[in-house]
Simulated assay, not measured.
Amino acid sequence: MQPQSPKHGAVSSPPSRAQLYLENWQANGLEAGKFFPRSQPGMRDPFAPDDVVNAQPPADGKIASAGKDFAASLDEVGTDWKKHSVTSGQNLEITWGFHAEHKTRRFNYFLTKNGWNPDQALTRAQFDAEPFHSVQLPEQPYWEHELAPGNPTTHTLRLPQRPAGHQVLLAVWEVADTGQAFYQVIDLQYT
């Protein structure tokens, strides 16, 4: 049995891949360096330069697991993931639950591109380069402000246009007072 690590936060609704296929403590611990889709560590936040620089973001092919060995099954290739049914342009509510306090800078939401290949590992090239939705807490410097979203926190996203089929939504919660972000993948079935 693996030791439990500190719990942090995860998407609970619609259920993320982590919520569906991992134990709760594991689903809440999918953290790696912030600023996706960037791949290098040691970068300052251009919006909040006093925030802690980023740690190493997850490697391509390890985005769903945030590079955590205990969650490697989330990176498996295939289309048999449990999917949440959606339509182009609909509003989708994403709910995060938090199990450890972190000063929050932003939440970014990315979607796989038109024509992405579900038979290949999730890479930066499979996602749009810019988030289709972002929620940013503007107060600076982080040590003088609470920067704590409600628990739970729900964001309403208008989904981009996509053809019918499997798409992957990547939800990233970026922390101001560490170099980390929390990665959650939600499988969608566009109808």
Rank of each mutant, 00 (worst) to 15 (best):
A48D: 05
S73D: 11
L92Y: 03
F47S: 10
D75N: 14
G67L: 01
G89S: 04
V77P: 05
A48R: 12
A55W: 10
G67W: 03
E76L: 12
S65G: 08
A48V: 02
S65Q: 02
S88N: 11
G61W: 07
H84R: 00
V77Y: 06
A55S: 12
K82F: 04
L92N: 10
Q90I: 11
W81D: 00
D45L: 05
A72D: 12
A59S: 13
S88E: 08
V86R: 04
D69I: 01
I94H: 01
K68G: 01
Q56C: 07
H84T: 08
D60T: 12
K68Y: 05
F47P: 00
F70N: 08
D51P: 00
E93W: 00
D80M: 12
H84I: 02
S88G: 15
A55C: 05
I94V: 15
S88A: 15
I94M: 09
V52T: 13
D69H: 01
K68L: 15
P57K: 11
I94A: 10
N54M: 08
K68Q: 15
S85C: 10
A72N: 12
A72L: 12
S73A: 13
Q56E: 10
E76T: 14
Q90M: 15
D60G: 13
V86P: 10
L74F: 03
T79E: 13
K68W: 09
V53T: 14
T87R: 14
P49R: 02
I63D: 08
G61Q: 10
K82E: 06
A66T: 00
P58A: 03
A66K: 03
A59V: 03
Q90R: 07
Q90K: 06
G78S: 08
A55I: 02
N91H: 02
V86L: 07
T87H: 13
D69E: 02
A71W: 01
K68V: 04
D69Q: 02
P58L: 07
R44Y: 04
D45F: 04
P49D: 06
T87A: 14
G89C: 03
T87G: 03
A48H: 15
V77F: 00
G78Q: 11
R44H: 09
G67F: 02
L92S: 03
T87P: 04
A48Y: 08
F47L: 14
W81G: 01
A66F: 06
K62M: 03
P46A: 01
S65Y: 07
D80N: 15
A55T: 10
G67P: 01
A64M: 02
N91M: 01
G61R: 11
F70G: 05
T79R: 11
S65C: 06
A71F: 04
I94R: 04
A59W: 07
S65E: 01
D45Y: 06
D69N: 00
K62H: 09
G78L: 07
A64C: 15
P46N: 03
E76R: 15
D75G: 07
D50K: 11
R44M: 10
K62T: 09
D80S: 15
P58T: 08
D50V: 01
I63W: 07
A66I: 02
E76S: 14
Q90D: 13
E76I: 04
K68M: 09
L74S: 05
D60E: 12
F47H: 09
E76W: 04
G61M: 11
D60M: 13
A64E: 12
